[in-house]
Design a protein around this nucleic acid. Sequence first.
DNA 1: GGTTTTTACGGGCTGCGTAACGATT
DNA 2: AATCGTTACGCAGCCCGTAAAAACC
Lengths: 146, 146
Amino acid sequence: MDIKQLYYFVAIVEADFNMSKASKALHLSQPALSQTISTMEKTENLQLFERSHGRLQNLTGAGDVLYSHAKDIIERFEAMTEDLQEESSQLKGNIRIGIPPVVISIVFPEILPIMLAENPKIGFKVKEAGAMELKKDSATPSPFLG
Amino acid sequence: MDIKQLYYFVAIVEADFNMSKASKALHLSQPALSQTISTMEKTENLQLFERSHGRLQNLTGAGDVLYSHAKDIIERFEAMTEDLQEESSQLKGNIRIGIPPVVISIVFPEILPIMLAENPKIGFKVKEAGAMELKKDSATPSPFLG
DNA sequence: GGTTTTTACGGGCTGCGTAACGATT
DNA sequence: AATCGTTACGCAGCCCGTAAAAACC
């Protein structure tokens, strides 16, 4: 059993037990889907769908059990994925910022809190000094990214 | 990302960040484990462990996030597996039972309710008749499984 | 030298697509 | 005829184990 299989299974249910429809939604060939489900049923030794007239008709009892669990797990799985993507997109490292007092009085209250909130992993080190002072201190091209 | 990978990851954390130890617990070669984690980190584009001195030392922030989610998902996954195994072990079909009155008076109250409770999917059809009558009706060897 | 992790390499398994078939409407 | 599902087949990708190396104790 595998997350992907849970996705496939749920997709079929939510495509009104129509494998062809589900396979399109999954961007997967229909035989691949059929085979996956078949393998699943054999491996777990249970029947998930009621089949008749060569079509899927409904969920069996076991299918019902699987469906509710699958929905739950998928939901949590996607929550995890979301959190992880957020982590991976978060910038890390240290940024030294030098701003003259006149500028910081405008920039700080508006921009900095947002940057800090969106990137808690960044260590901001703000140095407040006159323009002359900053120029001397900084050997890097930009006063904002050093 | 995959359930199996979550298992692997959690195993490492719970083996005190010792891959060799974890690999034994997982019945998996240590290089395979190392590679899986490495692939995971690259694929998801995040670092899960703090590494230094050629060892794993601790979880990173991202690792923390993954760990809590993973524990949760694994727990639910195992709950599902348990439920499914129960489904698959349940016997299905129909059983015709023929018992003479003298026997049924003993068997029914003691055994049958248990059988019914443990196997709700079975359709029990109990026929009560004298021993002679049953023998005539049944062409099958056992009076209990036909 | 003993642990621990990473890298390299090769083989077996599996998941998938294409194709063909079978069943139903 | 059109739709739906299963079966057959071949290939690419991966997962893993063995082996070897690198880093650290």
